[in-house]
Amino acid sequence: MWRSLIIIMILMGIVGAGVAQEATPEPNPTRPVTVDEVNKVAKDMFCPVCENIPLDTCGTAACADWRNEIRLFLEQGMTEEEIRTDFVRRFGDRVVGVPQDPFLNALSVITPWVLVAIGLVVVFSSFRTWARYKAHAVANAPETPTVTPASKQNQFLDQLEEDLKG
């Protein structure tokens, strides 16, 4: 029984090692990486030196070197996200379009929506106030004689003429 157990453990170890190998693939320096693949990664990053210039279009020699670095990373099998994380670790959150730091990310992305939501609440509460005013005004309005509704075409024409008057 002990023998069987040892064999099972050895087999599990082999399988486990295989799984682990699949999870972290060996660098594959022979994999050809095209400039388009490099630019696809660099397009969403900023030059760490020149402010607000995307890395794929920056003309400085330093950026050419960084693009070459991206190519090497891709050849080694790194994913786009891993490459971005590596650049952020070295140069800070300014090299990506939205910060990776969770707090900064939330601050950047959520703030405008919070402000928009507050604005919407203000606008709609104003509309509700106005609606109450309307209900109050209607309730207190003197009775007016019923007017026969005009045809749709006449309504539009009247409105148009009114608009043309300015």
Partner: peptide
Amino acid sequence: IVSEIFMDTNITLGKEY
């Protein structure tokens, strides 16, 4: 500006934002 003043971190918001 907020991140630079209060967190001493430079950030750039691009088209992803």
